[in-house]
């Protein structure tokens, strides 16, 4: 019989090392993926994975009062990813004017992606959007990653961040708009 997450968490809190191993197995890829998308490389993703599970181990006493293990775990992972990103980037702030672009620039994105024959253009655009993501401030970047790449719902993200859902909506809206503008600029430069 496969144990449920709450069953595993119970055993883990009670000191069962196998339960801890099983929890690592079930959540490791999710944590790795968030770390990888946030930091952009394997080594940092690895650090996020290790640190997240070491921290959950240290804080396992708190799990008895936690409603959803996954939310608690992902909160640790996302907080650590943001910390790590800030440490790596120092105090780098994206210049505001990088988002103020002339309105007449034509974005031909939709046409390119809609046409199946333009495989190369798609690949290039995919690289462009990944690059554009790195230009967003940590919280907006994380919101876009969690919602649009990893597929978490707004309410799940609100629980992770311990903030109202409206904040998630607004972060996501700002993030997508900035991505749009950065992408327009990158495409314009590339042409």
């Amino acid at each position: 019989m496969t144990k449920t997450i709450p069953e595993l968490v119970n055993s883990f809190v009670g000191g069962d090392e196998n339960a801890f191993a099983e929890l690592i197995k079930r959540f490791r890829q999710k944590i790795y993926s968030i770390g990888f998308q946030m930091l952009g490389n394997h080594l940092d993703a690895d650090e996020v994975v290790q640190e997240t599970f070491v921290r959950i181990f240290k804080r396992r006493k708190e799990l008895a009062n936690v409603k959803y293990f996954s939310t608690f775990l992902l909160r640790i992972a996302t907080n650590y990813s943001i910390d790590l990103l800030r440490r790596k980037k120092g105090h780098r702030i994206i210049a505001e004017d990088s988002c103020n672009l002339p309105g007449e620039i034509q974005l031909t994105l939709s046409k390119r992606v809609a046409t199946p024959s333009e495989e190369f253009a798609n690949k290039k655009l995919l690289e462009e959007i990944k690059r554009a993501l790195t230009n967003l401030p940590p919280k907006q970047r994380l919101t876009a990653i969690l919602h649009d790449i990893e597929g978490y719902t707004k309410s799940e993200i609100a629980d992770m961040f311990e903030c109202p859902e409206a904040t998630v909506r607004s972060n996501l809206h700002i993030a997508r708009n900035k991505l749009r503008k950065i992408l327009r600029r990158q495409i314009k430069k590339g042409e």
Partner: peptide, 25 residues
């Protein structure tokens, strides 16, 4: 444009590391 951004983000994928990596970690 917004639809395009969402579509592109949905295509961003993370590779799954090897079993060797997972047992090491």
């Amino acid at each position: 444009e917004l639809k395009q951004i969402k579509y592109l983000l949905s295509k961003v994928k993370t590779n799954e590391p090897s079993e060797e990596y997972w047992s090491e970690v």
